[in-house]
Design a protein around this nucleic acid. Structure first.
Length: 477
RNA sequence: GUCCCCAUCGUCUAGCCAGGUCCAGGACACAGGCCUUUCACGCCUGCGACAGGGGUUCAAAUCCCCUUGGGGACGCCA
């Protein structure tokens, strides 16, 4: 029996940031390897010198790390593995499975266009195939593709897929500048790294027969293939930048938790009955390629937002307080009192969908001078509540304890003494304390703010009302 | 144009492979309600789909065919 170790890989090309489609591919490969006790390899496909950049590589590594998609081997860089590819190409040449072609790019382009116009498939016509040409400065090497027959494979997700070989042409495996092309490099690497399962996007289905043909020409055993359906934008076209946020790092910066993104990505295409939420362990345990759907899907950003809110509610206060740091900084808040931050986090949890939301919600705790939201200011900071606020301030300043219980008692008495309902004073007080019309409960935020700050802010609100009154009176007079 | 793939609520999907228990279930969003000091959270209710047409069968969302629609690939990019 062969207890073959499962080895998967994620091979991004560093031509841009890691987008959520790529992240999902990485996730599925990672899950599959983890579940099977196998290995997950990261490989950077940077053979295109023009379009590859170190910055993109960095962004990809950073994205993977943030998501927690750890790799067991690599990252390998294709640009440093040319020896391997050249050896494979030479092997193919020796075996008579590949040949030199002297056609120029211009000629090829012309023929391609002509074929398209005639309604034919724009494939290479094979004119150098039997010429027995040798190496030459501008020559390329092509694979000798079978002229007849069919290439078929059983896709782990889509089932049996068949291509007639006559649909395929003699693809270039070595460029005129000596570098290997994508198909060759992928196969050579997958063989070298002992990849057993190739799990990748749907857009590679058409590449699969070409790659299989390379394996066959080499006499190497094939890996298993699983092609994931594409992720589409809301307009049902291939997801791209114009569909808004697609970069993994952008989601991080928008205040999403990696677990939420991972969960959302996992559920895009894959399902496990009616279950929507999964811990990482559950994902590893329950993931299965057979439950990956075949149809392309549209990324549901609203669902991700909802998931994020749920995960925020489940995250320990201390962790959130820590994660909130950079987001508070972005709001220009400095000198964050860590105790106060930890106290306010639980209040903000049920009303924050992202860390950005939460930071914004925490603003009132750390702002030196709170700014009043315009609409609320007009509506609630009015002359008729000024005296009430003053009386409330006096009441609060007389308290010796300032916890929630003490505050609730004090308020009960205060409302009674003044013959009013909490409604009457709640919104003005909220404006005074937070500058906003929406916030956590008043008693809770007062306890977090503390007696001094609460009194200061009420004083400030009263002064604000008076100023406004005077200004108006001045205008009239 | 040629080839490959796909098709259940607005979106993600369960159900399909092993046809009946599905006048199709869940989630997000949306609408209404309850709770309530605001906003959320939570709870309840509602809205909403088997692309169309042929077969096969006692019976089809489930199997077959066609049509339509969508996506992808056709590079000395990956």
């Amino acid at each position: 029996m062969s207890t073959e170790q499962i080895i998967t890989r994620f091979p991004p090309s560093p031509t841009g940031y890691l987008h959520i489609g790529g992240a999902r591919t990485a996730l599925f490969n990672w899950l599959y390897a983890r579940q099977k006790g196998g290995k997950f390899i990261l490989r950077i496909e940077d053979t295109d010198v023009q379009r590859s950049s170190p910055e993109a590589t960095q962004a990809i590594l950073e994205s993977m790390s943030w998501l927690g998609l750890t790799w067991d081997e690599g990252p390998y860089f294709q640009s440093r593995r040319y020896d391997i590819y050249n050896a494979v190409i030479d092997r193919l040449l020796d075996r008579g499975q590949a040949y030199y072609c002297h056609c120029t790019p211009e000629e090829l382009e012309k023929r391609r266009k002509a074929a398209m116009q005639k309604g034919l498939k724009p494939k290479y016509d094979g004119r150098c195939r039997e010429l027995g040409l040798g190496p030459k400065a501008e020559a390329v090497v092509r694979l000798k593709t079978p002229l007849s027959g069919a290439t078929r494979f059983k896709d782990l997700i889509k089932g049996a897929i068949t291509f007639q070989n006559e649909e395929l042409d003699d693809l270039i495996i070595r460029r005129s500048n000596g570098s290997p092309t994508y198909h060759l490099a992928v196969v050579a690497d997958d063989i070298d790294l002992n990849i057993t399962h190739v799990i990748r996007g749907d857009d590679h289905v058409n590449n699969t027969p070409r790659q299989i043909l390379i394996y066959k020409a080499l006499g190497e055993p094939l890996p298993q293939y699983g092609h994931l359906p594409m992720i589409l934008g809301p307009d049902k076209t291939r997801l791209s930048k114009r569909h808004g946020a697609t970069s993994v790092l952008t989601y991080r910066d928008m205040g999403y938790l990696p677990h939420a993104l991972l969960n959302a990505l996992a559920r895009l295409g894959w399902s496990y009955g009616d279950q929507e939420k999964f811990s990482l362990d559950e994902l590893v345990e329950k993931f299965s390629l057979s439950h990956v759907g075949k149809a392309a899907g549209i990324f549901n950003a609203e669902k991700l937002l909802d998931l994020n809110a749920r995960y925020i509610r489940e995250t320990p206060d201390q962790t959130l307080a820590r994660e909130l740091g950079p987001f508070l900084q972005n709001l220009g808040l400095r000198d964050i009192d860590s105790q106060r931050l930890q106290d306010v986090v639980p209040l903000l949890k049920p009303r924050s969908k992202t860390l950005v939301d939460m930071a914004e919600g925490a603003r009132f705790c750390f702002e030196k001078e709170i700014q009043y939201e315009e609409k609320g200011e007009t509506k609630f900071l009015t002359p008729d509540v000024a005296n009430l606020l003053i009386r409330l301030r006096d009441k609060l300043s007389s308290l010796s304890r300032f916890d929630q219980n003490a505050l609730e008692e004090a308020f009960a008495a205060f409302l009674d003494e003044n013959g009013i309902q909490l409604k009457k004073i709640a919104q003005p007080l909220r404006m005074a304390l937070t500058g906003k019309t929406a916030s956590p409960g008043l008693f809770e935020i007062m306890a977090v703010l503390g007696q001094n700050v609460v009194i200061q802010r009420i004083d400030k609100a009263v002064a604000h009302i008076r100023n406004k009154q005077n200004a108006q009176a001045g205008q009239k007079g």
